[in-house]
C-alpha cells in the first residue's frame, strides 16, 4: 500500500478485523446454539453452555423417533434425483453445446426463464397433474399387485410416493444443471469427438469412451448443485408426502417443532444438526464452482 500513510493503513486493517469478527459472529451464533443444544442434557431455547454433554438426543432421534427412516428417505430421494439430473443434463448439455439448430437459442432462453419461476406459483397445477398421473399409475398397477397396493404405490405413486417426489425434485434442478453442462462442454475442444468420428465410432461409443471421461468435472458440479438444492427443499415434500413412513428430514424437523406442548429442544437441535451435515459437506465441495455457475444460474 505505497502512497497510503502507514498509520492509515493500520487503521484500515484494524477496521477490517473488527468488521470480519462482527459479521462472523452474526453468521455463526445460530449454529453454535444448535450444536450446543443438541449435546446439552438440559437444552433450552436460548444459547447457553451445556449442563452436561450427552448424546441422548441423537440416540433418541435414531432409536425412538424414526430418525434413521427420515434420513434414509431424504438421502434416497435426493440421491435418486441427483443421479437422474446428472445423466439427463450431461446428454442434454452436450446437445445444447454442439447443436447449431434453430431450437438451440430459444431452448437456452427458456431454461433460464424456467429457473426464475417461483415453485410455490407452480405448486397447485403441478399437484393436479401429479394427481392425474397418480390415478393413471394406480389403475395400471392395481390388477397386478393386489393386496400390496398401498405399499407399491408408496414407491411408484406420484402423490405420497417416492417416484413423484424424485421426478419433481429432479425436474426442478434440471435447468441449472443443463446450463452448467452446456457451458462446460463449450470449453471442451471438439477435436476428440471428431477424431472418434473419423475412427468410425458411433454416437453411443463416443459418449461412453470420449465424452463421459472428459465431462466428469462438469458432471460433479451439476451433481453437487442439484444435491444441495434438492436436499434443502422443504415445499415439495411438505405437499407431496403424507405417510409417516415416507417422511423426510425437513418435514420431520418441521412437524417435531409443531408439537407445541412438548417441544424437546435437544431433539430438535439434533435433527437439525443431522440434516445440516450433508448440506455442509456438499457445499464445501461446491464452493469452488460457485463463481462459474453464477453467470447462468440463479442461486437456490
Amino acid at each position: 500500500m505505497a502512497g497510503v500513510p502507514l498509520k492509515r493503513s493500520g487503521a484500515y486493517t484494524f477496521l477490517a478485523y473488527v468488521t470480519l469478527i462482527v459479521i462472523s459472529i452474526f453468521c455463526l451464533l445460530p449454529f453454535v446454539w444448535m450444536v450446543l443444544a443438541s449435546l446439552d442434557s438440559n437444552a433450552q431455547l436460548f444459547l447457553k453452555w451445556p449442563d452436561s454433554i450427552t448424546f441422548d438426543h441423537y440416540i433418541k432421534l435414531f432409536a425412538e423417533e424414526n430418525g434413521v427412516r427420515w434420513f434414509a428417505n431424504s438421502l434416497f430421494t435426493v440421491l435418486s434425483a441427483t443421479i437422474i439430473v446428472v445423466i439427463i443434463s450431461g446428454l442434454g448439455g452436450y446437445a445444447l453445446s454442439r447443436s447449431r439448430a434453430w431450437w438451440k437459442q430459444p431452448f437456452l432462453y427458456a431454461i433460464l426463464l424456467i429457473r426464475v419461476l417461483p415453485s410455490t406459483a407452480l405448486l397447485v397445477p403441478l399437484y393436479k397433474i401429479l394427481l392425474t398421473a397418480n390415478n393413471g399409475m394406480g389403475s395400471l398397477l392395481r390388477p397386478f399387485v393386489g393386496d400390496n397396493y398401498r405399499s407399491v404405490m408408496q414407491v411408484f405413486g406420484f402423490i405420497d410416493g417416492y417416484l413423484g417426489l424424485i421426478v419433481v425434485l429432479a425436474t426442478g434442478q434440471l435447468p441449472l444443471a443443463l446450463w452448467i453442462m452446456k457451458v462446460f462442454f463449450d470449453g471442451v475442444p471438439k477435436d476428440y469427438e471428431e477424431a472418434a468420428i473419423l475412427d468410425g465410432a458411433t454416437l453411443v461409443q463416443r459418449i461412453r469412451r470420449v465424452l463421459i471421461p472428459l465431462a466428469l468435472p462438469g458432471l460433479a458440479a451439476a451433481g453437487l448443485f442439484t444435491f444441495m438444492s434438492a436436499w434443502g427443499d422443504f415445499l415439495l415434500p411438505l405437499i407431496l408426502l403424507s405417510s409417516p413412513e415416507l417422511q423426510t428430514l425437513p418435514i420431520g424437523l418441521f412437524r417435531a417443532f409443531l408439537r407445541v406442548n412438548e417441544i424437546d429442544y435437544g431433539l430438535l437441535a439434533a435433527i437439525a444438526t443431522i440434516y445440516l451435515i450433508p448440506a455442509v459437506i456438499a457445499f464445501s465441495f461446491a464452493r469452488r464452482f460457485l463463481v462459474q455457475t453464477f453467470s447462468g444460474g440463479v442461486k437456490g
Binding site: P30, M34, A272
Partner: peptide, 17 residues
C-alpha cells in the same frame, strides 16, 4: 456457512435467537 443451511434449519435456528 449460513448459505449451506437448508431453509427449515435456518428458520428453526433463528427461532432460538
Amino acid at each position: 456457512l449460513p448459505n449451506a443451511a437448508p431453509e427449515v434449519v435456518a428458520g428453526f435456528m433463528w427461532i432460538s435467537m
